[in-house]
Design a binder for these strands. Structure first.
Length: 293
DNA sequence: ACTGTACCCTGTAGGC
DNA sequence: TGCCTACAGGGTACAG
């Protein structure tokens, strides 16, 4: 599930019930996820209020009135179930498919409002950390992150400058969270297709000899921003066993043009190339070898 | 300093 | 049916 558009969709779903809300108590059902929970984790949350709920890259950040910030990452399979006091679920959050499996419910936030929020994560690649809010930007998981891809700071000039001396391909470049933060395997494939650039193309070819952006750098940055914007507007992508809380299936996955479409025909107007699958940096990449160069 | 690979963990799909 | 392998939206630790 969770690349930037999915994390942003989850954040928005959580914001409705968490912002200005107060934790009553917190259940922690195992000692760790990817990392151990912070010492006295439940006690440090209990009684505190969430004053702001933001996102940085694929991290959800809950700023608390205690001076600490709760850092949450969904890993590959992390999701939240929101149950409001009247037993309704909240549209925009991700919940289980029919036949809820509670085997991997690891954390439950009980809010004073009566709302209950359950964190479920089968593979446990997600995690929750606490850090003093004034040290947030220097926290190890956040300090090295590149700019947000939807921020003006993520420009053709920036990307070309970072790519100029690099000896990696475009797929690997865009997957590197230190270069640009929040892209993942799906949206990198989709953005490269929109920009008509091959995932295997050397990243250094985004720049001229002086590190200035070539046209393909402008095309790539625009494609990244467009695909993320479209995906957020669609409520993210829902794959496999995920559903949105209102029962409608997620949205953007129906518009994937290359992801998981190996062997199909390219749908770009005037192109009928056969989509291929390759592996870059250990992850599957999907692309059209005809129109992406 | 960089770059590629193995690995963390569980569930599922597909081949036999 | 069952068993086995490969693979999955992410990130990190290590080896070269």
């Amino acid at each position: 599930m969770p690349e930037l558009p999915e994390v942003e969709t989850v954040r928005r779903g959580l914001e409705r019930v968490l912002r200005d809300a107060r934790f009553a108590h917190v259940e922690v059902r195992r000692p760790d996820l990817r990392f151990a929970f912070p010492v006295r984790f439940a006690e440090r949350l209990a009684g505190s209020a969430i004053v702001d709920l933001t996102r940085r890259a694929k991290y959800i950040l809950a700023s608390l009135d205690t001076g600490e910030t709760l850092i949450m990452h969904l890993g590959m399979t992390g999701r939240f179930l929101i149950e409001e006091a009247q037993g309704r679920t909240t549209p925009g959050s991700y919940v289980y498919a029919h036949g809820a499996n509670t085997t991997h419910d690891h954390v439950v936030f009980h809010m004073r409002s009566g709302t209950r929020i359950t964190y479920n994560d089968a593979r446990r690649f997600g995690f929750m950390l606490l850090t003093p809010t004034h040290e947030l930007s220097s926290h190890p998981v956040l300090r090295a992150l590149g700019p947000e891809p939807l921020d003006v700071q993520f420009s053709a000039a920036y990307l070309a400058g970072r790519a100029a001396q690099k000896n990696v391909n475009l797929k690997t470049l865009l997957m590197d969270q230190r270069i640009v933060a929040g892209l993942g395997n799906i949206y990198v494939s989709e953005a490269l297709h929109r920009a008509r650039l091959s995932p295997g193309r050397p990243a250094s070819t985004l720049a001229d000899g002086k590190g200035r952006p070539l046209a393909r750098a402008h095309a790539l940055v625009a494609a990244v921003k467009n695909v993320l914007g479209d995906a957020i507007a669609a409520g993210g992508s829902t794959l496999r066993d995920y559903r949105q809380a209102d029962g409608s299936s997620g949205g953007f996955q129906d518009t994937f043009l290359v992801y998981d479409r190996e062997g199909e025909r390219c749908t770009r107007t005037g192109c009928s190339g056969r989509l291929r699958r390759a592996v870059h940096a250990g992850r599957a990449t999907f692309f059209c070898p005809v129109c992406q160069r």
